[in-house]
């Protein structure tokens, strides 16, 4: 199954009842799958008049307590930024999928990872974070969709899945979990109608009283602190004795893994650190992975964005080299291997 279709099927199985989107390559198959299947599974599929409309429909649906989702690719996600900030400010759970393509502007329709900063550091105006997952296979996309809906509900925050055109377009074998039958109860906050039998539930992000807004934001940051403490996740591959640790996520992590395997065959002690959550960034896990490392090589399909978080997490204790291709160009394992060899040669 294609990655995009797998994301859609997983969302339906996670109990997503509302999908709002606006078509864009390379996430198109996701919307198309939803158009076909959503109604049959008792949900709503709606192609909105724009990305901005779609995200605000997600906001509305999430306010009523249903599991809602939207998906887009880079330029479309930029348009959704305002709505995502509003949702964060209204404590609304929802899942947003970004199947990244080359940028800036309309860019290209080929795979890229140049929206890392946007997703993890600036997904809209205001003081807020969203949880960001970075799967690297079609199976992991399925698993992460189920998780994303659960975590969104648990913390009442928007959650993003940061995929890319390569993962969205590729086919791999996949197994799906059973559909969710029991979903969390949201009757203590959702605006779902009550026939005048209780106080109104107000979903709002506007607080004209500054101290009140400050208190709201501070409460939210207490939740973020819990997330930073408990929700980080990463894969460590051959890191035990690694002197050169390659850091990469998503599609570029697959390329890097091939390169690390090839480097090991050549007797180079290389390892791969792959964050599965980008916010929060798995700092502790990276420190663990680089315990014996002398150097780090960060590989991305961008001009270098996650590399800053790698430096921060290791507090600049280790030299961090960078290799990236951008604009829709996918790095090859040979290119990454050459970079590893360069570092290994320099270390001797």
């Amino acid at each position: 199954m294609k990655g995009n279709e797998a994301l859609a099927e997983a969302a339906i199985r996670a109990g997503c009842k509302c999908f709002f989107g606006y078509p864009i390559t390379p996430q198109t198959e996701l919307s198309a799958y939803m158009a076909k299947r959503m109604e049959k599974s008792g949900g709503v599929f709606l192609q909105a008049e724009s990305e901005i409309a779609a995200i605000n429909m997600v906001l509305g649906a999430a306010s009523t307590g249903v599991r809602a989702m939207t998906s887009s690719s880079s330029p479309g996600v930029s348009l959704k930024a305002e709505g995502i900030s509003y949702m964060a400010g209204s404590d609304l759970p929802a899942v947003i999928i970004n199947v990244q393509r080359g940028g800036p502007g309309l860019g290209s329709i080929q795979p890229a990872q140049s929206d890392y900063y946007q997703a993890t550091h600036a997904m809209g105006h205001g003081d807020f974070h969203i949880l960001v997952y970075a799967p690297c296979s079609v199976q992991e996309m399925v698993d992460v969709v189920m998780l994303a809906f659960d975590k969104a509900d648990q913390y009442r925050i928007p959650v993003m899945i940061l995929a890319d055109g390569l993962l969205g377009q590729m086919m791999e074998p996949v197994t799906f979990p059973e559909p969710r039958t029991e979903l969390p109860d949201k009757s203590d906050w959702a605006a779902c109608g009550h026939g005048g039998k209780r106080e109104h539930h107000v979903i709002n992000s506007l607080y004209l009283d500054a101290p009140l807004l400050e208190a709201k934001v501070q409460e939210r940051f207490k939740r973020y602190a819990v997330i930073e403490e408990t929700e980080t996740d990463a894969e460590l591959y051959c890191c035990g004795d690694a002197e050169i640790v390659v850091t990469a996520y998503g599609a570029s992590a697959r390329v890097a893994k091939s390169a690390v395997t090839a480097a090991r065959r050549k007797g180079i002690q290389a390892g791969l650190f792959r964050p599965k959550t980008l916010w929060p960034f798995p700092k502790k896990e990276l420190c663990e992975a680089t315990k014996h490392a002398k150097q780090i090589l960060d590989v991305e399909m961008s001009m270098g964005q996650m590399v800053d978080d790698v430096r921060l997490a290791t507090e600049c204790r280790l030299p961090v080299a960078f290799f990236g291709r951008t604009g829709g160009v996918i790095p090859t394992p040979e290119e990454v291997l050459a970079e590893i060899e360069k570092l290994a040669g320099g270390a001797e």
Binding site: L166, E172, R254, V255, I330, T332, P333, E334
Partner: peptide, 9 residues
């Protein structure tokens, strides 16, 4: 398990 799905050679 397959690493990079992009075939170059």
């Amino acid at each position: 398990p397959i690493g990079s799905p992009l075939v170059t050679a």
